[in-house]
């Protein structure tokens, strides 16, 4: 989480205006969700290229990020691929369970592959955006897109507090470990409980003090800030975005892969 935020500040595409990046990532994500396996692989390749080669996010970091969603995806795909049916004839491989048999059918495997490809493509769009665009840029753009202000404000504070609480949690954890709070499973569990309850109390305390400090600087109803100026995305890149999405759209329309 913190690594993602750091990359969002360190990459070379940070200087670009968030509008084009966000529009591209969102459109591609939506198109990816209705595309076939090949198109999804194309999306994955394009997003990896943009993130790693163009924005210069370290490739190893980018791939390692996939580990987390991949674990979930693999489990989901596996359960989709497994088919429970009455006759074993259609299955490539199956085990008998009483009157039924549980196994892999070509249709099931196809479906699992499609699920895997679409989710992978969507995740790559999300990673592209998250790794190249700092949070406040996304925020500012959402505001221009007329997302309700309350929502944006909450996201701003939540985002900031994630880091504050992460540091707090690390400090508490270290203090507990220094007094043998994580010696074995049982003490670890108890310490974790203490850590969470202590974080909870601190949350309430911190909201009070944060509120006071905001009020001291004239906070009334909204967290208005001035955005830093950003460069427009180069025309060639914009053109690339548009062409890529048009090709995806064309593929969807021609092959009609929405249903498959």
């Amino acid at each position: 989480m913190i690594g993602i935020a750091d990359q969002a500040y360190a990459n070379t595409w940070r200087i670009f205006h968030p509008r084009d990046k966000m529009a591209f990532a969102l459109t591609t994500m939506i198109l990816g969700l209705i595309s076939g396996v090949t198109a999804c692989l194309g999306i994955f390749a394009a997003m990896s290229y943009l993130t790693v080669i163009r924005a210069q996010v370290p490739g190893r970091f980018f791939l390692r990020l996939y580990l987390i969603p991949f674990c979930f995806l693999a489990m989901g795909a596996l359960s989709v691929a497994l088919t429970l049916s009455a006759d074993a004839a259609a299955a490539l491989w199956a085990i008998r369970l009483g009157g039924y048999c549980l196994g892999f059918t070509p249709a099931g495997i196809d479906q699992a592959a499609l699920l895997l490809a679409r989710s992978g493509a969507a995740v790559s769009c999300l990673f592209f955006l998250a790794l190249t665009t700092p949070w406040e840029d996304i925020n500012g753009q959402l505001e221009r897109w007329r997302v309700p202000y309350l929502l944006i404000e909450m996201m701003t504070l939540v985002y900031r507090f994630i880091f504050i609480f992460w540091q707090q949690a690390v400090t508490i954890h270290t203090a507990q470990a220094a007094r043998l709070g994580h010696l074995d499973f049982q003490t670890s569990l108890r310490s974790l409980g203490c850590l969470i309850s202590s974080l909870f109390v601190q949350t309430i305390d911190r909201t009070h003090t944060m509120y006071n400090s905001l009020v001291a600087r004239g906070y009334t109803d909204s967290l208005r800030v001035l955005e830093e100026e950003r460069l427009p995305t180069p025309w060639s890149t914009k053109l690339g975005f548009i062409l890529f999405d048009l090709v995806l759209l064309g593929l969807v329309l021609v092959k009609g892969s929405v249903v498959s």
Partner: peptide
């Protein structure tokens, strides 16, 4: 505690909060 006061992830935006208000 400066963490009480900095609500934004962005230095520039945080400083701009007061004058914007």
């Amino acid at each position: 505690d400066p963490d009480q006061q900095l609500f934004s992830v962005n230095v520039f935006q945080d400083i701009s909060f007061g004058p914007m208000n």
